[in-house]
């Protein structure tokens, strides 16, 4: 018996007209957009917390028009994918294994990872498992290392208090302070009500937002923290990516991953281009500056790897 993805509301369709496919990864249903020529180079557009594929709606058109295949999965727990109510299946290891399963089942080769926020470590983490098939990386306001924690993630107001044991259940689950107030709150261009709803409607159902709480708890600050080993594994393997064309696109006005994170990435991946900075953009830079970022990515890919395999 095949299950179907939840139906999208009609109001969403003008903003997000693409059909999402579904695929079973590790026993759970994952939703993903797959647009463009299936023979073209696949570009995996990977979102973070608390968003879903909607965040890349300005990227799909430009990439497919430039001759690439755009694949936009919703992580398990997010968007239109299954949202298991069990914290233990929402670890970095699970997320990475889910993406690896998608890559395997779609038989992706010569793929490109585009990741922001959790799309960075989870995307690169999965790519490292199939590093032979990886051709390029684009990173935006994210991190891949343990050694540095910025002010936002170490601050008790609101971050570490928000997701503390028990307290997180009250603020983040019972009151959905992040799942229903995320991207709209920091939007620099002033997104419309409908666009805000596009991000938030997926978490309106009670208890549908486990991942919005497990993700913050997986940002490791000290050895032994949830997620420490996974980030450390990625960090240690970064030298393996020395020959992979890499581009850093950055919104320095983002208070979550300020420019220090880009500088640290540049130290660890000295071959990376950039960081190319984009103003008038905060943490969800794909929403604030989508077309400009898409143009920069197409230009970079055309120059380095091209659309055909």
């Amino acid at each position: 018996m095949t299950r179907e993805l939840p139906t999208k509301p009609d109001w969403l369709k003008p903003l997000f007209p693409w059909e999402q496919h579904s695929i079973t990864v590790n026993g759970r249903l994952m939703a993903y957009v797959d647009e463009g020529d299936t023979k073209a180079r696949p570009v995996l557009l990977l979102h973070g917390n608390p968003t879903w594929g909607f965040l890349y709606r300005d990227f799909i058109g430009p990439l497919t028009e430039a001759g690439y295949r755009a694949i936009v999965p919703d992580w398990i727990g997010a968007g239109y994918s299954d949202n298991p109510r069990v914290d233990a299946v929402l670890t970095s290891a699970h997320h990475i294994a889910d993406l690896v399963s998608l890559m395997d089942q779609l038989k992706l080769r010569g793929f490109v990872i585009v990741g922001q926020d959790w799309g960075g470590p989870q995307g690169v983490g999965a790519a490292l498992q199939r590093v032979e098939r990886l051709d390029a990386i684009v990173l935006m306001n994210t991190w891949l290392f343990t050694g540095y924690v910025g002010r936002f993630h170490s601050s008790p107001r609101p971050w570490t208090t928000w997701h503390a044991p028990l307290i997180g259940q009250f603020f983040m689950k019972r009151h959905k302070v992040l799942s229903l107030e995320g991207p709209s709150t920091v939007s620099q261009r002033g997104m419309t009500e409908t666009e805000a709803q596009g991000y938030h409607h997926i978490y309106e159902e009670t208890d549908s937002d486990h991942v919005v709480l497990t993700w913050p708890r997986t940002i490791p600050m000290r050895e032994g923290d949830r997620g420490w080993n996974d980030i450390l594994n990625i960090e240690r393997r970064l030298p393996e990516l020395a020959d992979v064309p890499t581009l850093l696109l950055w919104a320095p006005e983002d208070n979550v991953f300020p420019i220090e994170y880009a500088n640290r990435l540049k130290e660890l991946m000295p071959h990376a281009e950039g960081p190319i900075t984009f103003d008038k953009a905060a943490h969800f830079l794909q929403d604030d500056r989508g077309p400009d970022l898409a143009r920069a990515i197409v230009e970079f890919l055309n120059r380095t790897v091209g659309g055909s395999l």
Binding site: V86, D87, A88, P165, L166, Q169, R174, T214, R217, R226
Partner: peptide, 10 residues
Amino acid sequence: LLWEQELDVR
């Protein structure tokens, strides 16, 4: 009212 599956996450 609140189910904390990972109390010892800290």
